[in-house]
Design a protein around this nucleic acid. Structure first.
Length: 514
DNA sequence: AAAAAAG
């Protein structure tokens, strides 16, 4: 079976050939001929199975007849995350290089203007996340009654994310005569109901999980103390131990705060790391992902935004800095490595409180995961030791480490309540840097502010010169404000010393106590 | 115990 047997147009075939593909994957072979005939498709397939091309290629062929009218897109593809949407756009660009198609990407976090212009011009292909799509429609800039082909991708994930009502609304805006291509990795009851409602006599194409993935990934559990610095140390040791074999790695954390904390910590230890989570501004998200794909970054610290769907080929290692709370997430995360028959390694850092989640994972995958270097019964209790490198600058360290721990707990709490998660001061601020006095001096506060700003801009553009990050008071770090941030987070902007800096009047100190 | 997605 080759691509030329599937009935695709010459223009599409030549782009596929140029991309270096000759053999369709099972989902492509199963779905493309039916999709070309205009049939509805129910595709049950995981990512990494060639699912995207299975709808992009037939759509391109079918779009060769006809032209788009202003504000009336001819096709619509719904994706759960912005990155996935952008990835689908790339596929249309790659395989549509012999076509003159207008492609519009409607995702949140970026300005409306450009998106509006593309809609105005008439889009052949509209790729969107649900929120931004509905937003455009409510503004009257978008008519969906010209849509001939609707694609709903990653439906089960849309369900997890609470998008199903939005999806139903959107489906109801599109004429009955459309063709619907529907993809989901799993078929929970809610999704089955959705397909019964919105698909007409679909052809079901099911691709079993690539059995090879499970076997080609070496999985290990790694014991660790439960304090953040224990876990960071465990991770660093692991990264160093794997260095020779490690080409690149994704490091998953359960929370966005942890992503940014770990990211900053790794930078301090000179690891070549980037970060990816949903509270970062869109430009930074795209940049980090692109740099990681291009090999400019070796490590990507990420939330589960990166766990599914994203096409990041050739990841040699996956580290779970946290044990995922939901067992399925484990499968998705480690599925980022060992793709396309290659081998991969995954290490999951586990603490005493993680045992029940590990049990759930082992039940799901039907296997015990081996311990890397002894199980949790051998963990030595932590004394709160953090072995981070010191900086020469500033006051000498305070005597007791344990003292500092107490300080970290006691002092960070009140400010943490206001802090936007991704920008909260890292624990290291109290730990392996300047000790923070109960009443911070103006200079301390000014420096902490500068640091925060450096971290902010670090999230947006990673500077080549690390020293700039280390001495942010020199200047050029500018705060990157995200105007899209929900109002409840904005309070943090009034926190501490923003707007006063080093010149903050003394009476403000009480407010800014850190 | 989370993340994601509109502003």
């Amino acid at each position: 079976m080759t691509f030329s047997d599937l009935g695709l147009s010459p223009k599409v075939l030549s782009a596929v050939t140029d991309a270096g593909y000759t053999q369709p994957t099972p989902i492509q072979a199963g779905a493309i001929p039916h999709a070309l005939l205009g049939k509805d498709i129910l595709g049950i397939a995981q990512t990494g199975t060639g699912k995207t091309a299975s709808f992009v290629l037939p759509m391109l062929t079918r779009l060769e007849k006809g032209r788009a009218r202003a504000r009336m897109p001819r096709t619509l593809i719904l994706e759960p995350t912005r990155e996935l949407a952008a990835q689908v756009e790339e596929n249309f660009i790659r395989y549509g290089k012999n076509h003159k198609l207008n492609i519009a990407l409607l995702i949140g976090g970026v300005s409306f203007d450009e998106q509006d212009k593309k809609l105005e011009r008439g889009a052949d292909v509209l790729i969107a996340t649900p929120g931004r799509l509905l937003d455009h429609r409510e503004r009257g800039k978008l008519l969906l009654n010209g849509v001939e082909i609707l694609v709903i991708d990653e439906a089960d994930r849309m369900l997890d994310m609470g998008f199903i009502p939005d999806i139903e609304r959107i489906c109801e805006m599109i004429p009955f005569t459309r063709q619907t291509l529907f993809f989901s990795a799993t078929m929970p009851p809610e999704i089955t109901k959705l397909t019964e409602k919105f698909l007409h006599a679909p052809v079901r194409v099911e691709v079993s999980k690539a059995a090879s993935t499970a076997t080609s990934i070496i999985q290990r559990l790694v014991k660790s103390g439960s304090k953040p610095w224990d876990k960071r140390e465990t991770l660093r040791n692991l990264m160093k131990a794997e260095d020779a074999e490690l080409k690149n790695a994704i490091i998953f954390c359960n929370r966005k705060v942890e992503v940014s904390e770990l990211f900053r910590s790794l930078l301090k230890y000179d690891f070549d790391a980037g970060a990816l989570h949903g509270d970062m501004d869109q430009r930074a998200r795209m940049q980090m992902l692109a740099n990681f794909r291009d090999g400019k970054l070796r490590y990507l610290v990420a939330s589960d935004v990166a766990a599914r769907g994203l096409d990041i080929p050739d990841v040699s290692h996956v580290f779970n800095y946290d044990v995922p709370i939901h067992a399925e997430d484990y499968v998705h995360r480690i599925g980022r490595t060992g793709r396309a028959g290659r081998s991969g390694k995954s290490f999951t850092i586990a603490t005493k409180s993680d045992t029940k989640y590990i049990d759930a994972i082992e039940r799901l995958i039907g296997n015990k995961i081996e311990w890397h270097d002894g199980d949790l019964s051998t963990v030595v209790a932590s004394e709160g030791e953090d072995e981070a490198p010191r900086r020469g600058r500033g006051a000498p360290r305070r005597a007791g480490r344990k003292d500092d721990d107490r300080k970290e707990k006691g002092e960070r709490k009140p400010r943490e309540r206001h802090a936007k998660p991704s920008e909260a001061a890292p624990p290291e601020a109290a730990h392996d840097e300047q000790p923070v006095a109960a009443e911070a001096t103006v200079a301390d506060i000014g420096e902490r502010r500068a640091r925060k700003e450096a971290i902010r801009s670090e999230n947006t553009e990673r500077k080549a010169d690390r020293n700039e990050q280390r001495t942010p008071e020199r200047g050029d770090s500018r705060p990157q404000r995200d105007s899209n941030r929900p109002a409840r987070h904005r309070q943090e902007d009034n926190d501490a010393t923003v707007g006063f800096g080093d010149d903050m009047p003394a009476f403000m100190r009480i407010v800014a106590k850190v």
